[in-house]
Each structure stands twice: as C-alpha cells, then as structure tokens.
C-alpha cells in the first residue's frame, strides 16, 4: 500500500511537470520571448486534446489557441480550422 502511494505520487509529479513544461513553452511564445514552430504548437495542441492533460490551474489552452491565430494564420486556418 505504501509502495503504491509512492508510485502514485511520482506519477502525479511527473504529470504536473509535463503540464508545466508545456505551459512554459506556450507562455514564452505568447510573450514573444521565444519563437514557437508550427510543429511544437501542434505537439502542445495534441497534448491538450486529451482532457486528462488539462489542468484547471496550470494548463493554458486559450493562450495556445490565441497563439495559433496570431502566429500561424495561414497554416492553421488551412490545416485545423473547420
């Protein structure tokens, strides 16, 4: 039981870490501190497609969506907008 809890905690922290890493990439691109490629943007978008990866406090899907409209106007309207 104790061992199970340790694994659970480790999983939890790993997931939080991934969520925060994606948020940092998106945030820096939004602030124009770093350039984001279309491939990286797609990777973030795919990650957020799974509702389990959406954290109420730390995920920033709206910022990612705005980034799409701002940075990849042609690309994204052609490939993902319906």
């Amino acid at each position: 039981m104790i061992l199970w809890n340790i694994w659970l905690t480790q999983d939890y922290f790993e997931k939080q870490n991934t969520i925060l890493t994606y948020s940092a990439v998106i945030s820096k691109a939004y602030q124009k501190e770093e350039v984001i490629s279309y491939e990286k943007w797609s990777e973030c978008q795919n990650y957020y497609t799974n509702p389990e990866n959406l954290d109420f406090l730390y995920s920033i899907p709206v910022t990612l969506a705005i980034l799409a409209l701002r940075e990849f106007s042609d690309d994204i309207s052609r490939r993902t907008e319906t």
Partner: peptide, 15 residues
C-alpha cells in the same frame, strides 16, 4: 477557463 487566461482571452477580439 483558467483564471490566468481571463485577460488574454478578453483581448483577443481583433484576432
């Protein structure tokens, strides 16, 4: 929505 994104969302009308 994430509260942190409130201001960002409300300033996206031009996009």
């Amino acid at each position: 929505f994430n509260l942190m994104e409130k201001e960002i969302a409300l300033s996206s009308y031009h996009l």
